[in-house]
Simulated assay, not measured.
Amino acid sequence: MLIQLAIIGILFAVIPLAVVLFSKEQNKYKKLIAVTLFLTFDLIIFGAFTRLTDSGLGCPDWPGCYGEANPFQAHSEIKAAETLLPTGPVTVAKAWVEMIHRYLAMSVGFLIMLQMGIAWWKRKTRPFSPWLATSLFVLVGIQGAFGAWTVTMKLQPIIVTIHLILALIILSLLVWAWQRESPRSTTKYSFKFRNLLPLAFIVLLMQVALGGWVSTNYAALACHDYPLCNGEVVPQLDFEHAYVLWRELGRTGSGDFLPFSALITIHWVHRTFAWVVFALLAYVAYLGRKHADTKTLSNGVLAVLLMQLITGVATIYFSWPLAIAVLHNAGAALLVLLLSMLNYRVRSSVANES
């Protein structure tokens, strides 16, 4: 089975590798990073789709599906589980969603392993240390472990949330690796802009973690209106149970059923902190628009912020439609990507080194 899975993962990587090999880009290594970055972004979105369609346990074992390399081979077991519980976590469709997600993850892992190999092989002729590529490889290994624990620990919220944050950190490091293959900026950026950017990135990751906590606890519809929450500005909150990190899905730390007030708290904190994030990122983007070489990226941040506001509110008013929920997750990943680009561009500026 493991050999079959490895072959499938490599086959999924063939097309992106072909794009690199047949590209007119002189710097093939840069192209490899760009393609890996694109696939990683897609993988994050598909991971959101997997989570939102409740397909995370579509195959209840790991790394295969009922001990097989693909749902075709495990069709009888999957079908038996679906017949027993048609609306349960194991169905033919959900099994395919989960396994395609794993195949894509394996292909990204293979491409990152290839990057590391090239970085070490050409370490004497390349201007950059191979340790960034090595760090990415290590993180992918850790991410794979959390992917396994997501299944074996039955979607435990803290495991799934860490899995999401690690994916975004990998995305950010790939942005860093990709951008350092290009000439560095010579712009002298304002002191305020330079120092607020890292803070904006950290605050954004905090908000994504809060959003992941909402999603993994199935709290997206705990408040059914907006800007009020169930008709109240500040509903009855239950921090005692809402942020106990080590617990089973739907349970308190002591094993009892999680009260609905805890889900309301999880939802309300995410939507309230969103305004802090919106204000900080909008201000940082405003500062970035004053510099010619960060204006486009800053405009992108403003556009995605607006999209996030619209999709976040629409998710509540339209009772969490799948397409809008996936788009909201994609917007979060896109903000991470854009802020990573801004942080690298400003931090690596030649003018700022003096």
Rank of each mutant, 00 (worst) to 15 (best):
H163I: 00
L173W: 07
T186I: 06
V151C: 00
S190D: 00
K192S: 11
L166P: 04
E181D: 01
L174H: 01
T152M: 09
L155T: 02
I162H: 10
V151G: 09
N195L: 12
L168R: 06
K188C: 03
K154W: 12
R194F: 10
F191E: 13
P198E: 00
S182P: 02
L199P: 04
L166G: 11
W178S: 12
L168I: 00
F193H: 02
L199R: 13
K154I: 11
K188N: 11
L171S: 00
S185P: 03
T161L: 12
L168M: 00
F191K: 13
S182F: 12
T152K: 10
K192D: 06
S185G: 08
T161S: 04
A200W: 05
L196Q: 07
S185E: 00
I159K: 09
V160L: 06
P198L: 07
Y189Q: 06
A177P: 03
Y189A: 09
L173A: 08
S182K: 13
L174C: 01
V151D: 09
M153Y: 15
P157W: 14
S172T: 05
I165G: 08
F201H: 10
A167H: 08
P198R: 04
H163R: 13
S172N: 11
R184D: 03
E181Q: 14
Q179Y: 11
S190A: 10
R194A: 01
M153H: 15
T187E: 15
N195P: 04
P198G: 03
F193K: 11
A177I: 01
L155A: 00
L174V: 00
F193L: 13
F201P: 05
R180H: 14
F193A: 06
R184L: 13
K154M: 11
L166A: 04
R184E: 08
P183C: 02
L164Y: 05
Q156Y: 04
F193W: 03
P198V: 01
T152S: 10
I159P: 05
T152I: 07
V160F: 06
L199V: 15
A177C: 03
F201E: 04
E181F: 10
E181A: 12
L166I: 05
F191W: 15
L174N: 02
L155E: 04
W178K: 12
A177M: 13
K192T: 14
V151H: 00
P183M: 09
T186Q: 11
I202H: 03
L196D: 02
S190N: 11
S190Y: 07
S182Q: 14
I158G: 11
Q179L: 15
I158S: 15
I202E: 05
I202L: 12
R180Q: 15
A177L: 12
A200S: 12
I165N: 08
P157S: 08
T161H: 09
L204G: 05
P198C: 06
L197E: 07
A200R: 09
P198I: 03
F193V: 01
A177F: 11
W178C: 10
Y189H: 11
